[in-house]
Design a binder for these strands. Structure first.
Length: 367
DNA sequence: ATGTCC
């Protein structure tokens, strides 16, 4: 079932033959094996090549931190809020108009960021970024419960047919790149955990909390804009490091599998699958796919206006004033999320609990 | 990914 082409037993790729995994991504994973301290590498079915390394993987090391595996967007992840409203009573056109204002949000005051647990120096420099979506694959999406696959788990989570959900994908904005730059290291060598690694991790943890707060502010503002009451449901990071004793677990585009339910979104023209992970699958490093994964890189989507203007396959309204971003993020740039989730199920990594259907997606209000 | 190139 595991179509790993590597002879190295430390590497496992959790994808079926029918999933499209680029050779370049597998080669990037094999390069990661050569880094100092690497014990194991897990590739997820949404694995794809990234600019500087593979996206959709987890890397376990002993005593070594590799900040460039996580990359610049430290703390990036998914937050979901459960709203009180239901889809059948939603005025879609009004919601589109309301959510179009999400980009106008002016950030938080530094004192409010401090009150939310952000250190004063970071709050002074970055509070304005809290509540901003950012670029790339980030989004805020209003969705509705479309199918309840595991009725018991849905009931436990408070899900019912048509219930509105807000899904937020964003990260630490300008803070993450700043933290990465503040901790220089030799590529492949990384940082000793009992040394410079600890200093990186302290800053990393602040960025992780900042990203989580950013998503919470986004969700709260989105709920306010559409006049809905709601409550936080889940928050799962997919770009971060966790440490247990001497073991250092890096995740790059791989969702943490031991925090309960995980939303696995497809493209911005596809369903989101809410799954219940099994964190103890051997070799999977307590991780699972964080989404559909890119099928085509950003550059190859440029000039493809036709892709960007193609009718949305699911019918959700996408707010994206930036035409270049719309082309890069067209649904055709992404793998089939149903196949990714089928692979997760086939390998025992996760089972589907519910399917969420997008209604309105906010990408950016700026051209 | 990034107040994204001054």
């Amino acid at each position: 079932m595991i179509n790993s082409t590597s002879a190295d037993a430390r590497l496992r790729i959790f994808a079926s033959a029918s999933s499209w995994i680029e050779g370049a991504a597998v080669r990037q994973l094999e390069q990661v094996l050569g880094r100092r301290g690497v014990l194991a590498v897990a590739g997820m079915p949404d694995l794809h090549p990234g600019h500087k390394g593979p996206v959709g993987c987890a890397v376990l090391t002993e005593g070594i931190v590799h900040p460039d595996i996580v990359g610049t967007d430290i703390g990036c992840g998914m937050t979901a809020w459960l709203l009180d409203g239901v889809a059948r009573r939603l005025r879609v056109e009004k919601a589109v108009q309301a959510l179009s204002k999400l980009g106008d949000a002016g950030g938080l005051e530094p004192e409010d960021a401090v009150a939310a647990g952000i250190p004063a120096d970071v709050a002074a420099a970055h509070a304005e970024a809290l509540g901003t979506v950012g670029g790339g694959n980030h989004f805020v999406e209003l969705q509705a419960v479309h199918a309840m696959v595991d009725g018991e788990a849905c009931a436990a989570a408070g899900l019912e047919a048509g219930r509105l959900v807000l899904l937020v994908h964003s990260g630490s904005r300008g803070l993450g790149p700043e933290v990465l730059a503040r901790h220089p290291f030799v590529h492949g060598e990384g940082l000793a955990l009992e040394g410079a690694g600890r200093a990186y991790l302290a800053d990393h943890d602040v960025a992780l909390g900042f990203a989580r707060l950013n998503r919470a502010v986004l969700a709260e503002r989105a709920a306010d804009l559409i006049g809905q009451d709601g409550k936080p449901w889940l928050d799962v990071p997919h770009n971060h490091v966790t440490v247990a004793g001497d073991l250092v677990l890096h995740r790059k585009g791989a969702a943490q599998a031991d925090l309960g339910l995980v939303p696995v979104p497809g493209s911005r023209g596809a369903m989101t699958y809410v799954v219940a992970p099994d964190p103890d699958v051997p070799g999977a490093l307590r991780s699972l796919a964080h989404g559909a994964g890119r099928k085509r890189d950003r550059a190859s989507m440029h000039g493809r206006r036709r892709d960007a203007e193609r009718p949305n396959p699911v019918g959700n309204r996408v707010i994206c004033a930036d035409r270049k971003l719309a082309m890069e993020e067209a649904p055709g740039a992404y793998k089939d999320i149903a196949q990714v989730v089928a692979d997760l199920d086939a390998h025992g990594l996760a089972r589907v609990v519910a399917i969420l259907k997008p209604i309105v997606t906010f990408k950016t209000g700026r051209a």
